[in-house]
Write a protein that binds this DNA or RNA. Structure first.
Lengths: 255, 255
DNA sequence: CAACATTCGAGAGCACTGCTCTTGCATTTC
DNA sequence: GAAATGCAAGAGCAGTGCTCTCGAATGTTG
């Protein structure tokens, strides 16, 4: 689910770059265009009806072509979903990156808050896409390797804050002196591979808990588990989420 | 999503009670039995193939009856899913209640830990049922009111700990002196309705963050988002989860 | 006990899905 | 220009949820 942090920068450049090769022949041009159209219509259907209702036949109908013709461009429904998943990860990643880039580099809490808010805003604006990537996986489906790099973008942003927080030397004593159990330290080995050796076990641990907390809070709200828990009046959900952000920031020592 | 805490006890008694009325006539007997069989087979299919693949026709086939006959007992696929959702909530609730009941009443951290561990264990043992209740909701589906009471059981357990922690008077100063923003306090009004007036805003807030954290941690693990983040060797995931429990407990002041 | 009413099971059928295969046509390449 | 390739369309298979009708079994009532 994660790609080494050092490689993430490369990914970001690659994905934000426009189409790498302009198609030469007319056939290739048409192919690229129709593929794009199929993905656009699929994205539209996904946004309005959700992933379970996404139908290749309906897409073909919308495009005025036979259902069998779509299979020239998309291998299967699963493959289409995979493309939409990658697209969603990138869209979310770009939103988070753009929000974080707007904050002052030295303002760690500002960067942290920007990321969290961007993730929540994106999720609310794209509920079905969020459910596609962070909701219950479809039982048979296995995420292909192409999805892990786009899926690491938000994690990479959060991680960089932990690195910067460590480098700043302003971490509170309760964190720098905190120790995690040897077993947990061992369990964190894959994440350490991603983060690098600059960040302490304790901070990695707190950062991951904050990350899963962010994910839990957004999912809880989006999946309707907050009904009769948090008010739904204007600004109420936002006020609550602000509190969450503050708590997570405190937890990783940047508040 | 929540039922007033005071009513939860009633619910618990109701749901654990065996079938309230033994059917008299042969027809009613047969009807109850066949309904039971349908639900059993559905539960089995749910466990093995997941909710999206749950098919009324397949259930009918397994039971050796025509697919149309199933509709005499189950109004629709949605209604069947609703029954399974309620069943799952109750199963999870019972597991959590049983685990919590095994702990000493005065051992708040023990009760807290028992609940968290029970929730995770149940989720791992019943991934598809967990996904059914806490995963992405199906777009068209709206949860009927019958689901909210069973869905409140775990929350009720956690809430009782907060009540007991407040009553014990052993809460750390950083919590008793903590204040939440007026906006957030306002947003917490529905949850306060559930919790009662004994628990402070600050503790309610921390408790809810812990709750969403628990949900996020379990979902993250179950939905495969922890690949390459936490090791998958024996005991690694458990060690990590222990750390989460400790952190949440610290957060609500019972560590 | 007979007549009526209700319930039930089964089959056919509709509209939909993912996906495959063949057939004819257009385009590209040699 | 001929051969190879790419493409669109249609038919078809197996599956889905759900509805309707039609006999048969089981209730209840006169």
């Amino acid at each position: 689910m994660l790609l080494p942090l050092s490689e993430c920068e490369t990914i970001r450049v690659m994905t934000t770059e426009t189409e790498k090769s302009i198609p030469r022949t007319a056939r290739e041009r048409a192919r690229a265009e129709i593929t794009r159209e199929i993905l656009d219509v699929a994205l539209h259907h996904l946004a309005t009806d959700g992933a379970p209702a996404l139908s290749l036949r309906a897409i073909a109908r919308d495009l005025g072509m036979a259902s069998s013709a779509v299979y020239r461009y998309v291998a299967s429904r699963d493959e289409l979903l995979t493309r939409l998943i990658i697209d969603a990860y990138n869209s979310l990643g770009e939103a988070a990156e753009a929000a974080e880039a707007r904050a002052d580099r030295s303002d760690l809490i500002g960067r942290w808050s920007a990321i969290c808010t961007a993730v929540r805003s994106w999720a609310i604006a794209n509920p079905n896409r969020y459910a596609l990537i962070y909701g219950s996986p479809v039982p048979g489906y296995v995420a292909p390797p192409d999805t892990i790099a786009p899926g690491s973008r938000v994690a990479a942003l959060l991680t960089r804050i932990l690195v910067d927080a460590t480098a700043s030397g302003h971490l509170p004593a309760e964190i720098t002196s905190d120790l995690v159990s040897p077993a947990a330290s061992e369990a964190l080995a894959p994440l350490r591979e991603f983060v690098g050796s600059d960040v302490s076990d304790a901070l990695i641990q707190r950062g991951l808990i904050a990350w899963t907390g962010l994910y839990g809070a957004v999912s809880f709200e989006l999946f309707g588990q907050l009904h009769n828990v948090i008010g739904e009046g204007p600004g109420e959900r936002e006020a609550w989420f602000e509190e969450c952000i503050r708590r997570w920031a405190t937890q990783v020592g940047i508040a």
